[in-house]
Each structure stands twice: as structure tokens, then as C-alpha cells.
Nucleic acid binder design. Structure first.
Length: 730
DNA sequence: ACTACGAGACTTTTT
DNA sequence: GTCTCGTAGT
């Protein structure tokens, strides 16, 4: 059989990966090595050569964006319809699975999905009813405990609890699951754990999917957590094959449970004969790659790879040292101007930083300079307050047991139902183990508040009735008209945005339906032999829309397509590329972040983070750091990042202050410490006979009592009395 | 039921 | 420094 023509142009490793015979495979795909291309071509190749039908493919990604991109590229390669294909995020696919088999998973047909916010609200509410001290057991920590254990595949009963504290956590975890079950809601981790347990328990179902999914493909494998790995294993074994693509050097999500170790485990457990490495980079110039290679070589426990390019070395990296964070920002603004003069588009330039707090100074400088910019991160469409309120109305219409939704909007807009009334309702609900809604229904309270509650219940019910046979966008519109949310937010004259967002929600619903008609065939019809609810199916599109809202919170910042500089954290930049990249704040304590010192493998992860940042750049890469920085309302003095020393000097051009850059340092009034005729200044580099080299970051006292705080190379800082410490300037 | 003030946090984040 | 959250006061 002739090979499909689209294979032309692949390099030999890519070709090998794409055309591999039916077997499990591990592809270590370096940054810019054409990873997504290989993944999509592999699918196209399998289908084109009749090794599998589209329905036999399961492809998993981490983000909706990646899933969309894969589908888009796939339909460009092949004239097939992507309808029957299972391409999506772990959570999206689990949702699909659970919707299809909700009975077997003992979930209501219209189960709702809790996002993190919602989940935290449930935890708080629960702890209140259980009367658990939230100082001793901070809700955030409880939430993390629950998620962490779910991601390890553990139910409350399986958690090891050697001490009092953990036992209490375990109790809350168990109560939380009970509560969620009663309300018919499911959190993100639950989506995975529940479908994992479903497949584990239900042999015929498992068998069905084993038969079906002949080829499973996984993107960003290094980001999988334990449960996701087990889920894949359960879905593939025995006989199925997994095509895993990942890069251990780009593993930067350990803090949320990702285990790059899954790559090694996978190679072993799935008998991967030889690992295919994609090392040819099609993105960056040579110097940039060499800097990245050398930096990452300082990590141990790597699968090991070295990026190379057929392109030239290009220009050298530039490193700039600033006196203050403002100077740093000014420098970057000037450099950006130079680049745009040379014809680089603004949106092909990125300013990256370790922590969001750093964007402020940069934004200020950009704003003053009149450069347009866009900051990624921040609130997303479906996470906005007013949208959450509107969604709560819809949720309550779909599922009246949803206490979270009930509580959220029972008094929005204000209708005279205060904390007092709610408490009474909650007490009834707790006693009879029923939802707030049922409590309100069954035990009507007397008085004005009771009337208000009744009116509320009736309002929602009549909404539900009037929406019954309407198409989804009309339902949303109808809800907005009758809920008085619009008038409520009209009073907030400060933000007309909120009104606009609410109206936008109708458009979102319209867009969702249009999209669903293309890609989301009614799985229930195709897949599920077992689930045919007659009572509630007319609300299926509403439930699907609500799931969509939770699973895909919407664009981070709806960039209106205009040319603007891109500001984001290094994490957010993963997977992207730019002609020119600035990485700012390369200081010890910031990058690597000081909190990383506490964590096992923390420094290595920070190094990988910088590796990711560096490999975003195609042509121009500028690193910068500042001697001083305003952080948490305090001036902090930092030493350059240790990572800078790990980049070979011959690749770097060091920039110094230029004459036209106003030194603002005088304004920050360096404080001095004097002792025996010697003067020490904040920011000055010094040497200590015992602790080594460091920098003075603070001083206090005077005369014989003068002390200075010195931050040493290992990250520690110490207060030293000048009388005793033998400090010498370096 | 709504506003105002103060305490405390504050790495990274997708689903 | 600035934002969020929770409580106390009106």
C-alpha cells in the first residue's frame, strides 16, 4: 500500500514514530520538534492505512485548546468527519463517559460539574454544618487534601490516617463525597476517579471499550498524574496500545500532581522497546538551543536529549542587569521599541515572568510608553461573578438538589432572604438529610422571609416550565429576563461590563449549540445501550452547556486580535512560541522561587521552568534581573539567579546601563552602614570568610551596633554585626 | 441587608 | 503595595 502523501517532509525520527507498527510507544518530543504534527499525523496515518476506523481512536490532551488544535489539524489532513472520534481532555472524555453511563456510575442524568470555586464553596458549607473549626482546618487545605487523594486514586476510606489531624481530614473527605452525591454534583478529580472506578467495576463496559479503542494517544504525557496514568492503563490493557508523547524536561506541573515518572513507568509496564526521541528543533536559532541544552544538563534523572537545529547560531542571548525593577521595565520597553522598528510584530514578542505579581511594573512602563499589551491569566468568562450567578439559575433549573446553586442565588437579586432565614433552612435540610430546595418546599417558613422563599421557589419552577421546550439560547435569554439579574446588575453603574457579559452568555449558548452540532454527536444514542431517561432528556443540551461552562472556563482574555505585546507567566507560555522573548526577574528567590527550596526536586523544576521559557524564543532572547525589587510592599534586594551561571558565557552578550537610561537609584536612597572608616551600601556585593559571597540587602543600628543583613549565594540570609563579621567588598 | 474597615495573604494552574 | 475576605457596625 502506498504511504499517504502527507508523510513527505517528516524527518526520520518523526517518520518512524508516525508509521510505527501497532505497539505501545514512548516519544520523547523536545520543544519545537513537531510534537503535535507527529501526533496528528499518526492518527491520520492509522486511519488512512485502514489500521483503525476513526471510532477506534482515543486521543487525550490536557487543555481544550490542544484538543481543538488536534481536531482542526486532523480534519485538514483527512476528509473524515471527526464526530465519532474521542478526542479531548481527560476531564472532557470522562464527562462523556459518565454522561453516557450515568446509571452505571450511579449519577443523575443531569449531574453538574463543580469548578474549583464551587468545590471550595461546598467544603466551606459542609464544614459549617459539621461545625469544624476552619482555623485548624483551613478550607483550602481541606480542598487540596481531597483532590490530592482523589488524584492518587484514593477514596476517604483508603486514606492512611496515622494522626488526629489526618483522621479529621478523612472524616471531612468522606462527608464531602456524601454531600456531593446527595446534591448530584461532581468535582474535577471526581470525574476521573468515578469513571476509573466505573471501568474497574463494570467488566462488560470495560470490555466494550477495550474492543473499541485500539489506539490510545496521549499528549503531554509528563503532565499526567497517578490517577490519569491508572485510567489510561485500565482503558488500554490488555491488548490496546498507547502512543505516549511527552518531554520530561518540560515537566513543570509537579505542584498539581503531575508525575514525570509516569514516563519511565510506562516504558516499563508497556514494554516499550526503544524510546523515540525527537531532537531536531524547527523553532529556535542555535545559540538559544545551546543555552537551553546546557542549562537543563544540570538536572539529573533525565531521559536525556539534546536539541539541535539545521539553522544557524543566530544572535547571542542578551543579559541585562538593572538597578531597580523600574529600570528593568524601562529597558525592556526600549528594547521592544527597537524590535518593532526592525519590523517585528508586537504580538510576536513576549514578556515572561515567574510570578504574576511581576506584571504590574512592566504594565506601568508599557502603559506610560503607549505600547499596547495583553496580559494573560486573570479571570475567565465563565468564572465571572455575574456569569456564575446566571449559571446558578440554570443549574438550579436543571437540578434543584444543587445546594451550591441555591445558596448562591437565593438572595440575588436581594429579595429579603438573609442569613437568618438561610440558617433555618439549612437546619431543616441537615435534620432530614435533604436539599435546601426540598427543605424550603416541605417546611414553608412563616413570616415575610418565608413568603420570599416561596416566591423564589415558584419563580424557579415557572422558569423551568417556561423553558421546557425552548432551544438553549432562548432558555438562557428567558432566564435572564425573568431572574431580574439584568436589572440587578444595572444598578451597578460602575461596571456596564457585567451587563455586557450577561448578554454575551446568550451568544455563548448559541455558539455552543452550533459547535455541538458539528463535533458533539449525541453520544447517548450511539454509545449507551443502557441510558435512556425519558423524564429529563429534553434538558440534555442545558446540562451539556453547564458542563461545558465548567470544563472550559472560556478564553483567558479575549484578545481582540489587535497587535499587542504578550505578557504572561512562564507556565502560561508553555506550548507557545515567539520571535522575541524577554524573561525578566532572573533573581535568586524569584526565579528560582524561594518557595521551591522547600520542595523535593524544587530547584530542578524551576530549572525546567526556565528551560521552557528559553525554548519559546525563535530569534531574540533577552534575560534580565534587577538588584532591587518592590515586593509585598517592601524593597527586596536580590542576587542574580544561579541559573544565569549555568548558561555558557560565550553565548551571552552582557548589557550594561546605557547613558540615556536615567538612573533612578538615587531616589531609592541607598542606606549606608559605616564601620571603622569602611562604608557598606545596600545592594553591595561582599565576601565573608566563612559564608562566602553575598549581597547586603538591609542594615540597621549605628555606631558599634551596626548590623547588616547579607544574602549569601546558597539563598540563606544572615544578620551580621559589622564589629565582628570580617566583611570585605568584592 | 448593606457598607466599611481591618486583618492576612502573596508561586506557578488546567480541568 | 494591593486585593480579598470576613466581621462589625449602621
Amino acid at each position: 500500500m502506498p504511504l499517504p502523501s502527507f508523510l513527505a517532509g517528516l524527518n526520520s525520527q518523526q517518520h518512524e514514530a508516525v508509521t510505527l507498527a501497532r505497539q505501545s510507544a514512548l516519544i520523547v518530543a523536545g520543544a519545537g520538534s513537531g510534537k503535535t504534527r507527529v501526533l496528528t499525523m499518526r492518527i491520520a496515518y492509522l486511519i488512512q492505512t485502514d489500521q483503525v476506523s476513526p471510532a477506534g481512536i482515543l486521543a487525550v490532551t490536557f487543555t481544550n485548546k490542544a484538543a481543538r488544535e488536534m481536531l482542526a489539524r486532523l480534519s485538514a489532513l483527512l476528509p473524515i468527519n471527526t464526530r465519532g472520534m474521542w478526542v479531548g481532555t481527560f476531564h472532557g472524555l470522562c464527562n462523556r463517559l459518565l454522561r453516557t453511563h450515568h446509571r452505571e456510575a450511579s449519577l443523575p442524568a443531569l449531574f453538574q460539574i463543580l469548578d474549583s470555586q464551587d468545590q471550595l464553596a461546598v467544603v466551606k458549607r459542609l464544614m459549617k454544618t459539621l461545625q469544624i473549626d476552619d482555623d485548624k482546618y483551613p478550607p483550602k487545605q481541606v480542598q487540596h487534601f481531597i483532590n490530592h487523594h482523589k488524584e492518587e486514586g484514593q477514596r476517604a476510606a483508603q486514606v492512611e490516617a496515622p494522626d488526629r489531624f489526618t483522621q479529621q481530614m478523612q472524616v471531612i473527605y468522606a462527608a464531602y463525597d456524601t454531600q456531593c452525591h446527595r446534591e448530584g454534583v461532581v468535582d474535577f478529580a471526581e470525574l476521573l476517579l468515578r469513571s476509573y472506578e466505573l471501568l474497574q467495576r463494570n467488566e462488560s463496559l470495560r470490555h466494550h471499550y477495550h474492543q473499541r479503542f485500539q489506539h490510545i494517544l496521549v499528549d503531554e504525557f509528563q503532565d499526567t498524574n497517578r490517577l490519569q496514568y491508572l485510567w489510561l492503563k485500565l482503558l488500554a490493557n490488555p491488548g490496546g496500545t498507547i502512543f505516549a508523547v511527552g518531554d520530561d524536561d518540560q515537566s513543570i506541573y509537579a505542584f498539581r500532581g503531575a508525575q514525570a515518572r509516569n514516563m519511565q513507568d510506562f516504558a516499563q509496564e508497556f514494554d516499550v522497546g526503544h524510546v523515540i526521541k525527537l531532537e531536531q528543533n524547527y523553532r529556535s536559532h542555535g545559540n538559544i538551543l545551546e543555552a537551553a541544552n546546557t542549562l537543563i544538563s544540570h538536572n539529573t534523572d533525565r531521559l536525556g536529549k539534546n536539541l539541535w537545529t539545521a539553522d544557524g547560531n543566530g544572535e547571542r542571548l542578551r543579559v541585562f542587569e538593572a538597578a531597580t525593577d523600574r529600570d528593568e521595565a524601562t529597558f525592556i520597553v526600549n528594547e521592544v521599541r527597537t524590535l518593532t522598528r526592525d519590523g517585528v510584530r508586537l504580538d510576536d514578542i513576549a514578556l515572561l515572568y515567574r510570578a504574576n505579581a511581576q506584571s504590574r511594573v512592566l504594565e506601568h512602563a508599557l502603559f506610560s510608553a503607549g505600547l499596547s499589551y495583553r496580559v494573560y491569566g486573570g479571570q475567565r468568562f465563565f468564572e465571572r461573578k455575574e456569569i456564575k450567578d446566571a449559571l446558578a439559575y440554570l443549574r438550579l433549573m436543571a437540578n434543584s438538589n444543587d445546594d451550591g446553586a441555591f445558596q448562591r442565588i437565593v438572595n440575588v437579586p436581594p429579595r429579603g432572604i438573609g442569613a437568618r432565614t438561610l440558617e433555618q433552612l439549612a437546619a431543616v435540610a441537615r435534620q432530614q438529610v435533604i436539599s435546601l430546595w426540598s427543605a424550603a418546599q416541605r417546611c414553608p417558613l412563616s413570616g415575610r422571609a418565608g413568603q420570599a422563599v416561596n416566591r423564589f421557589i415558584q419563580g424557579i419552577e415557572s422558569l423551568r416550565d417556561s423553558c421546557r421546550d425552548l432551544p438553549l439560547p432562548k432558555q438562557v435569554d428567558n432566564m435572564l429576563m425573568h431572574s431580574e439579574l439584568l436589572t440587578h446588575y444595572q444598578k451597578d453603574k460602575q461596571d456596564a461590563d457585567r451587563l455586557q457579559n450577561l448578554n454575551e452568555l446568550v451568544n455563548a449558548a448559541t455558539a455552543f449549540i452550533a459547535e455541538a452540532d458539528n463535533h458533539w454527536p449525541d453520544e447517548a444514542k450511539i454509545e449507551a445501550p443502557s441510558s435512556t431517561d425519558s423524564d429529563q432528556t429534553d434538558n440534555a443540551s442545558l446540562a451539556a452547556f453547564l458542563a461545558h461552562a465548567a470544563l472550559e472556563a472560556g478564553e483567558h482574555q479575549a484578545g481582540s486580535g489587535q497587535d499587542a505585546l504578550q505578557l504572561m507567566t512562564v507556565h502560561a507560555a508553555k506550548g507557545l512560541e515567539f520571535n522575541a522573548v524577554f524573561i525578566s526577574g532572573l533573581e535568586d528567590g524569584l526565579f528560582p522561587h524561594e518557595n521551591s527550596r522547600m520542595e523535593a526536586d524544587g530547584l530542578a523544576e524551576e530549572r525546567r521552568l526556565l528551560y521552557v521559557a528559553i525554548t519559546r524564543a525563535r530569534r531574540h532572547l533577552t534575560l534580565s534581573f534587577s538588584q532591587s525589587r518592590m515586593l509585598h510592599g517592601q524593597m527586596r534586594y536580590n542576587v542574580p539567579s544561579r541559573f544565569l551561571e549555568e548558561i555558557p558565557a560565550n553565548l551571552v552578550e552582557t548589557l550594561s546601563y546605557t547613558a540615556d537610561l536615567p538612573r533612578q537609584k538615587a531616589k531609592s536612597a541607598p542606606r549606608y552602614a559605616e564601620m571603622a572608616g569602611q562604608t557598606f551600601r545596600i545592594g553591595q556585593n561582599v565576601h565573608h570568610p566563612k559564608f562566602g559571597d553575598g549581597m547586603i540587602i538591609d542594615c540597621e543600628g549605628g555606631g558599634d551596633d551596626t548590623r547588616v543583613q547579607v544574602k549569601f549565594g546558597n539563598g540563606d540570609s544572615k544578620w551580621l554585626a559589622l564589629t565582628y563579621a570580617k566583611l570585605t567588598p568584592t
